[in-house]
Every structure is written in structure tokens, then in C-alpha cells.
Amino acid sequence: MTQSNSALLSVKNLSTSFHVGGQKLRAVDEVSFDLAAGEVLGIVGESGSGKSITLRSIMGLARRYGEVTGEVMWQGENLVTKPEAQMRKIRGKDIAMIFQEPMSSLNPLLTVGVQIKENLVAHTELDKKARHLRAIELLDLVGIPDALRRLNDYPHQFSGGMRQRVMIAIALASSPKLLLADEPTTALDVTIQNQILKLILDLSHELGMSVILVTHDLGVAAQTCDRLAVMYGGKLVEKGSTRDVLRNPLHRYTMGLLQSVPENVEPRTPLFSLPGTPPSLMNLPKGCAFAPRCAHAVDACVETKPPLEGTQHQVACFNPTQPPVGAGGQS
């Protein structure tokens, strides 16, 4: 299942757990995937499925709060075990991240200019004047009009969409090779959502930057990503090219997600919705996390966790919609 060594980022068996009141909660469970240079990978799942924590674990932000194990290979080094001081040189420089809530993720007390420039101070050799010019250039790049004047504005003086652009500008400040986008459009209006997604895609192409886009919105993922990974209960349950996953979903959960998207259906057909609710991390089932909601669960689903199998299009399911290509042995 390992892909070529040309991968920009290679995540292997990444797990993140938190201790809450004597209990250990496993929010990310043995997640593995590769990302090629310039590729856009989507991680799709409901809230609480562990996708945001996966991103924060890659960034080394989660380990302040919990226990992170496994491998995040980046340019020959494992970021999981890398000391904080060295992580700081990679964070914001090679790997940048944008957050879900542009309102609460920008410091309300500092001008946008200061918040862009502090990134340049940390990661570049630019002098004060050059930083100023670069900051203007960045705001221009993300499509904020009147960049020079707006540098002195505070976050609350921007609209939601503009704030998200500011956040992208900050993330791009030191030309990262990888952008981790955590639900970048969820807090925005639909029209603005499309603008921001297009912006991220365009920038990815122009700058040759890889992107991991975390979203709960299959529509967003479909129009943006080269490959998709579907996450449920802290585990990856299906992984493949966007085309394969959407045209030919193997996992019952993916199937359910697709059916609940009200697109391309006859008017007045009742909308499908997955029965039940996502599992609480406090008491994940012993077997497949989706089994309690799954109409096609077999006995094995309750007892053991299905492994991710297949080559190009992988699925973790004992009773998939159809057997994955290259799956060994099973019916």
C-alpha cells in the first residue's frame, strides 16, 4: 500500500489520543496516507470524525494536548518526534495551515499587517521595508483590494470572506510547500465559499503547492480535490481518486454520504439521511465504528476493525458495495 518514494508527505499509522478524566480517547486511529507534490487531497467526514485533529497532529499542534504516535515523514524526517524548537522552523514556513473560523483565528487586537509580517519575521531574512512590500503583495495575491491601506486595519474591519483571504495570505507568507486547510469555507456564505476554494486551487497550481483540504462537505471536496480520503470514528474508511470514490463508492458510509447530497435527484424525492449519529469518542465500538449505523453489517463488523485494503482505491469494510481491486482473498 505504500506508494512511491516521491511522496512529499507520508503519514503512517498516525494516532492521537487525549486523556480525559482517566479515560483515553483515541481521536485519530492509525491513519496512513501519502501526498504527492502539487496534489490536492481531501479528507472528508462528519464533525468529530478526527479529521481536524489529523491536521493538527501533522502540524505538531496536537501533542501539547495529547499523545501522538506514528510517523509523519516530511523530507526524510519524522515530524512526530521532532523537537518543538525545530518544528517551529517548519511550521508556517514549509507547512502552513488555515483554520475554520476566520473570525476567531485572527488576533482581534493586532492589525492584519502585523499578523502577516510576524510570519515573515519568523521565517524570512527580509528587512522591514521588504516585509512591508511582501505583505502588500500577499494581500494582492489573495485578492484583497486596496492592500496598502488595509494593512493597518484590524480583523473585525473585514468581512468573513475577506478574513479568510487574510488568513490564506498569512499562510502563504513564506511560500509553503504544503497547505493544510481545515474546513476553510465552512463558516462562509455559499458564494464566498466558491471564491475561496477557487483561490486555494489557483494558488496551489501557480505555486506548485500541495493541499490537504479537510471538509465535511462532499460537494466542496468533489470540485477541489485530486484524491479523497473518507474518515469515520478516527479511522480512514475509504481512500482513492476523487473520481473513483464519488462514482464508485465502496464503503457503505461513503455511499450514505453521497446519497445525502441533494444534487442530481428528481424534485420531490425524499432526501436520504444516514440513520443514527456519529459515535462518541468516549465509547467507540469494538469493531467497525460505523457498524451500529450500517444496514449491511455482518458479524465480523461487530467483532474486529476492518483493515484498509486495495491498491488504488482502498476501503476498510468486510462487506463493501463491491470488492476493492487488488484485495487479497476475501469474498
Binding site: 487525549f18 480525559v20 464533525s47 481536524s52 496536537a62 494536548y65
Partner: peptide, 17 residues
Amino acid sequence: MVKKLFFRLPRKSHMVA
């Protein structure tokens, strides 16, 4: 409170207090 930035903590029974 600790991990509220990642997910809403499952609530323990009030009686613990």
C-alpha cells in the same frame, strides 16, 4: 476545557462534582 479547541468534550456525569 483543555481540549475544547479540538472537539467538544463528552460530558461526564454532573454528580462527579
